[in-house]
Design a binder for these strands. Structure first.
Lengths: 119, 119
DNA sequence: TGGCGAATTGATGATTCCTTCAATCGGTAG
DNA sequence: CTACCGATTGAAGGAATCATCAATTCGCCA
């Protein structure tokens, strides 16, 4: 029956890669509070309409969001409840990592005051 | 003091992008069970030594792993305990997504038996 | 000191991803 | 029917990522 048969670690990698874009992250976070029409997403995120559509298409293809047409607008929603939890876990780790990096920076300050990791 | 100042959603995106590679995922999963020398990682993962080093460098730069030299080998470990939890959350969502996709496929089987979403 | 194994780094071509613009679809109102 | 608005799609150029090869570092030992 050939059931897709992709190694699990590769599926995971594709999943994370799907998350690896600022606009897509913002969309998922906004949808964490409930369904939202494209018009509203467009108002909250600074991005061109066409670009937003591209990113929404990526999310749709992966199956993490669903879209429904209502009259003249399209409404998006999360496909499952665990997504919000994943984003929380990610935030926890990020906080941890950033804190760790700031500790490192504090140690390095005496050597180079113009240190920046944001290029 | 200019504390890195990267929008949070962008930091998150970079974080997920950092996770978005099969070899890097496998490394993190192996390290979830405890520190491990490069030699062992190399034995468990099918990848060239040089390529593994490249991926380890990516993980190191992000701060999610740390490396220590011991005699003639280098030992890697996770930088924090939350990483394993994140991987678990990801697995949950993936299972959910794949299950959903299989439901969809089941519905579609009657229309096209060669359906494949693994290109 | 010279050489060896383990690991990393630098550079390069190939692939993939991202942004943008133009064209298209779907629905609604005039 | 035509015009318009919201949203999606297709295509193309530019940027980032990946795999691979050669060169280098680091520690050990003969």
């Amino acid at each position: 029956m050939k059931p897709v048969t992709v190694p699990l670690y590769q599926a995971k990698a594709e999943f994370f890669r799907m998350l690896g874009h600022p606009v897509r992250i913002r969309v998922l976070e906004l949808l964490s509070d409930g369904p939202m029409p494209v018009r509203e997403l467009l108002a909250q995120i600074e991005v061109e309409r066409s670009n937003l559509s591209q990113q929404l298409a990526v999310l749709r293809r992966s199956g993490i969001v669903a879209s429904v047409r209502e009259a003249d607008t399209v409404v998006y929603s999360l496909a499952g409840p665990d997504v919000a939890e994943l984003l929380r876990a990610a935030r926890r780790i990020l906080t941890e990592l950033i804190t760790g990096q700031q500790d490192l920076l504090a140690e390095l300050r005496e050597a180079d005051t113009t240190t920046s990791s944001a290029e």
